[in-house]
Design a protein around this nucleic acid. Structure first.
Lengths: 198, 198, 198, 198
DNA sequence: GATGAATGAGCTTTCATTCAT
DNA sequence: CATGAATGAAAGCTCATTCAT
């Protein structure tokens, strides 16, 4: 009496989700290299072998997680930029990010994950990641900045470079928080965005 | 006839230097855990065994590198803060750092190394490092900022937290440069220091 | 479908046994330091990695083997000393040991292992072993000798020292057998115990 | 102004002697595998490279030392057996050996070295050693026992096997002394030789 | 002859991945 | 689908041996 296809699919999806959640937690906590498949399996409450039914390799699981994260982030930005006020939109996004970082929310650690994802791995698969990051996150933000510049809200300058610098600052703050823990308080939104108004 | 002591010392120093240079490059590029001693040996053009004549373990080599760069950095700052003009001093330091990062100079890699030093390793040896970093670099800069505040050059606020944020930005920029390569131009000094004047 | 717990336990126990058998043979033949995990794996017909599922380290495997054999030996003696005739009991034990040694039985290898356990290793873990050996084996035999003395079966003298000498002789015979192979015939029981009747 | 041939030979011999002395001490203390060439060089007060001018390998140095030891021992026995009283001669030899063992004299540890020499190494070179041991030490003692049997001093039986058992006991006592240290007192000569008179 | 820097094979150990069940 | 025993490549590290000086 085999299960129906729907039941199987549902179980499969649930398992996949468990793996992703466990994997994210582990990678953020200990980094790619020091996270073992056994760690992830244990955190997900399944066997190591089962992971390989859902992801071809540790690397692929990691890549998938980075992908997910980026999608989410880009999604956030897209939703927020509908109302025509770039300055307020970016302020809201930034404020949300800073709060996450201050509270050590998992989302805040995506920035750390993201940077790490590049350095640990062979050049080929990275390129595809890079393009996605570029497209989804940096370019989206660049467009937001460009609109702000047209409205006179932000200072002039290459929007894409300003976008990169914006994420540099966020990345740096996330790193410092991880590094210093309670000894570091995330700065106010105005400080983070100061360079856009000068 | 055996080599003279001078010859040996010279050879030793040259080899050690080669190892440190290669090690720094590898650690920055791939992180601690994913850098193998063989990688370093190959980059240095020597055998793996020889590294162990100069450093007792991979960990010790890494720690030494963090130490080195930190000292250098603290040195730089100390030399610069003699003339009584904090704003100009910090501008000079920042400008120097940004140039290093843009040119991929080894010193710029320090910030990346620093963050990495936390992950992947046992808490104890890190703690001593952390204290040194705290003392030499962050506190030194905090003092500089404090003086600038007294002179009305910088905005008010906890100098230590402002110092940490300053280094967050530098750290973020260094990471982004490593991440994006030629697609990222380091921002002008004014952008990096904007938050201090707002 | 996964294996049942029973199946796994059975496989596990079988593998563990193979490792112990192979390990004992290797350690006895070549000593601790010169026996490689690869040697043991090859002798057991498994991969090196698998050993580490069952023993945390080479050292722990070795310690386990010493433990095993000691327990077995002490067990033997305990069972035999119930009938109140120390001389006959010890004769039986000795006879059994000599037959084992002559036939290169695994138990005979214990004496060689025992001595080896001292060399090449840190003092701490050995000490605990030493105490167990002392207690279980030497003292047990000493008690047997003491009883024999009271019954006038054995010559007078410190029972513990006589016990140690007894095991010296057994140890020496086991070594010589290993050393000379077929060129050496183990001596008759009377020769080995001669000193107890003089 | 080069040294004369005599001077060179003398220096060479002195160095060789230093190496042998240092090597013996190290091997006895820590065994073959755990003694490094650096250990020996340091103990001899020379460089590691210099050892290789006198011995082709660690193995060969070890073999040489075992050889030396055996020669010495055989020499001792030969000298002692001139006066026509085998029982007294063997008693003297045994007494000397036991005293050495009790006092942890280096000579006493030759027995341990001797056994070890076999087990650590390839079969071919051992064979030559084995023959020498057989010839010089065991057979010499066997002859002594045979003479004693003719004179009615020792019990009957294959003299060679009795000789082997005699050395088994000595070997066992030396091992036990190493193993137990001060907790073990070497037995009186009569105990060690008891089996020869039964 | 003498040195010790340098090499690289080989060791113990870990862990991503496979596969019989 | 799910398990975890088993594999083996690769890591960090040691040390016998070589060789430029």
């Amino acid at each position: 009496m085999p299960r129906t296809k729907e039941q199987n699919d549902q179980m499969s999806a649930a398992t996949r989700k468990k793996i992703e959640t466990a994997g994210l937690a582990c990678f953020v906590q200990k980094g790619f290299a020091l996270t073992s498949m056994k760690d992830i399996a244990k955190a997900a409450g399944i066997s190591t072998g089962l992971i390989y039914r859902h992801f071809a390799s540790k690397q692929e699981l990691f890549t998938q997680l980075v992908d997910n994260t980026m999608m989410e982030m880009a999604e956030t930005i897209r939703f927020l930029d509908s109302d025509g006020n770039p300055s307020r939109t970016l302020t809201q996004v930034t404020s949300g990010l800073l709060k996450d970082i201050q509270g050590n929310e998992p989302i805040s650690q995506y920035f750390i994950l993201m940077t790490r994802s590049l350095l640990a791995l062979e050049p080929l698969p990275q390129m595809s990641e890079l393009k996605k990051i570029d497209l989804l996150l940096f370019q989206q933000t660049a467009r937001l900045i460009e609109e702000g510049q047209k409205l006179g809200e932000f200072r002039q300058g290459d929007p894409y470079q300003l976008s990169l610098f914006f994420f540099s600052v966020i990345q740096g703050v996330a790193d410092m928080k991880l590094f210093m823990g309670d000894r570091f308080m995330v700065p106010p939104v105005e400080d983070v965005m100061a360079f856009l108004y000068s």
